[in-house]
């Protein structure tokens, strides 16, 4: 469990994080979304005790980072994949980390195998691709077998197979009851990986909800209707008070009404209906809508979601 309580962080005149509160619960993957510069990395650094909030507090399982006795065994983080000494081997990098928290040396081999880097354990990390560095960063985070894990853009630089692997890994770690907090700019990726969502813009909370609630509460219900009597049906729907738009290929888009109500109107008018499908906005579309508002109308209080 990660709990942020009204944290604020200012660098010079820039307010990177502004009165932000959220909770990340164990057992599910929680996605952390926001446009570039919205304060995601700053927030993650504050969770890890690296940056100190000006006010407010972040706790990990109820404890501040400074009160953890074996930090690596309680919280693991992948913040910057390339934050490695280029001349050190992967195995020695992990060994030095393991020694800080009395983690046995055998664990190094285990996590290297877990991320698929056992074959390059002795190679200098300066020769690693971004994808390999990401895997090594994931190995570092898992080294202490912690209950709370933070990943900042973990799929950056990974090939499709690697992305799938990270997705499965995050889900399996969550299913073991761990708290998984993962930021990404790939909103489509979060749509298939995360269950919960924390969305921020300009350092402020936009949403702290589940992925499905986030989409449904931020999009008007739109239903695509296809009918051989499209013109008559459009008239009938408009007469009944629905907002109807024609699509290029002869379909109708009805906004604000659910499929059942549209079907009833069609039935009453005696018009055949060939398709009646509710349209789900993608997470990406919802996110773009919300965050573009944050940029266009800055200073505005974020809408309660």
């Amino acid at each position: 469990m990660i709990t942020a309580s009204r944290i604020t962080k200012t660098y010079g005149t820039t307010r990177a994080v502004d009165d932000l509160s959220f909770e990340v619960r164990p057992g599910v993957v929680t996605g952390f979304l926001g446009p570039n510069g919205s304060g995601k990395s700053t927030t993650m650094r504050m969770v890890m005790g690296l940056d100190r909030p000006d006010s407010g507090a972040v706790t990990i399982d109820g404890k501040r980072f400074g009160d953890l006795r074996w930090p690596l065994r309680e919280v693991g983080a992948l913040l910057e994949a390339k934050a490695l000494h280029p001349g050190r081997s992967a195995a020695n990098h992990l060994l030095a980390l393991a020694q800080t928290n009395s983690i046995p040396k055998s664990r190094v081999g285990e996590v290297l195998e877990l991320v698929g880097l056992e074959g390059v354990a002795k190679r200098k990390v300066g020769k690693f691709s971004l994808g390999m560095s990401q895997r090594l960063g994931i190995a570092s985070a898992l080294l202490g077998d912690p209950g709370v894990l933070l990943f900042d853009e973990p799929v950056n630089g990974l090939d499709p197979e690697g992305i799938l692997w990270v997705r499965n890994l995050l889900k399996s770690l969550a299913s073991e009851g761990r708290t998984i907090f993962v930021s990404s700019h790939l909103m489509s990726e979060m749509a298939v990986t995360a269950t919960d969502l924390v969305v921020i813009g300009r350092g402020q909370l936009i949403a702290d909800t589940t992925v499905s609630d986030f989409i449904s509460s931020n999009t008007e219900v739109t239903v695509l209707v296809r009918s051989p009597g499209a013109v008559q049906l459009a008239d009938a729907l408009r007469a009944a008070g629905a907002a109807v738009q024609g699509t290029d290929d002869g379909g109708l888009l009805v906004t604000g009404w659910d499929a059942a109500r549209i079907g009833d109107v069609a039935h009453a008018a005696g018009i055949a209906v060939h398709e009646l499908s509710p349209q789900q906005a993608s997470l990406e579309e919802v996110f773009m809508d919300l965050t573009s508002d944050m940029v266009d109308y800055h200073g505005q209080t974020p809408a309660e979601v």
């Binding site: 074996w70 020694q99 800080t100 877990l114 698929g116 880097l117 090939d159 499965n168 890994l169 399996s172």
Partner: peptide
């Protein structure tokens, strides 16, 4: 080095005493 399957590492035995201290950092 690429694998799509997730094989969990065995759990790490917990330590319930002491804390990560200077000795640990010196070795590291």
């Amino acid at each position: 080095m690429t694998t799509a399957t997730v094989t969990a590492a065995p759990p790490l035995p917990a330590i319930d005493h002491g804390h990560a201290g200077l000795g640990n950092q010196v070795v590291s």
